[in-house]
Design a binder for these strands. Sequence first.
DNA 1: GGTATATGAATGCAATTGCATCTAAACGAT
DNA 2: ATCGTTTAGATGCAATTGCATTCATATACC
Lengths: 146, 146
Amino acid sequence: MRAWVRLAKAQQIALAAIENALNDADLPPLVWYDVLLEVERAKEKGIRPFELERAMLLAQYNLSRLLDRIERAGYVERAACVEDGRGQVIRITELGKSVRRRMWPVYAGAIERAVGEKLSANEALALVGLLGRLTTPEAGKSAGGA
Amino acid sequence: MRAWVRLAKAQQIALAAIENALNDADLPPLVWYDVLLEVERAKEKGIRPFELERAMLLAQYNLSRLLDRIERAGYVERAACVEDGRGQVIRITELGKSVRRRMWPVYAGAIERAVGEKLSANEALALVGLLGRLTTPEAGKSAGGA
DNA sequence: GGTATATGAATGCAATTGCATCTAAACGAT
DNA sequence: ATCGTTTAGATGCAATTGCATTCATATACC
């Protein structure tokens, strides 16, 4: 229980710091970064919205509209999908790439202040390990998971 | 950096699980629980919105409207503040208490599944310690921690 | 081939959030 | 007492989110 409360609070504080930093720098919100990063990683081949949806744990309608906005800003392009007539393919634009690059130092700086400065390298590593246990779908605690 | 990413993901997953559990049980969202708990702790004396605001890291306008909704549901009552003509005092109602009590097992169960089941007691304790470092306003990395 | 079901994505509408601004009361200095 | 400033809280309006539903194509079954 205490772990959950602190988890929530730590995340809330760090997230607010990051969003503020981006906002102050007149840059888009953090989710945009995540989307742009995923889309950029997909290169020319692009990525399907439903893949993005799963990668980012975003609700379908939510992603649909987020892509609307990012597209309207000119950071990604939607194209009809050849293999699947229902679907589409998202590709990043040059403008999108440049915005993502500009977001990175601001994002990284905020994380450094919110997390890096507060933990030693070993502590950060330990935290990564513990949090990793929470994100796996596995049961986890007992050895012989059935 | 990796620590932040995992922190965000772990929180997101756990939060979604909790909100879903509450939703499935036809109970109000998690913030309502937090508010009700704080207000209930203040007993008859009540609590001022601005205190709540600081305790919960909520934006002022956000809290104002959240209290509107919780009040409309009949779970808290607003009263003019005697000592400060600008302010008010929030008190929980019997209905509010009972709802908070009904929320607890659902909330606790979701946390147990999202966190408790994935970590041993020692691991959970270690996580509490590490996350605590992130929520202190202090710089933190150097050894002199309180 | 024809119909039922499942999947990818969009959308109407209500609820919530964020931003900026506003009101009123308290404080502080004259 | 009066004026400027700060603090507590509310609110108009735009943007975002959530829910339910819709549309269109793909797949499975017969």
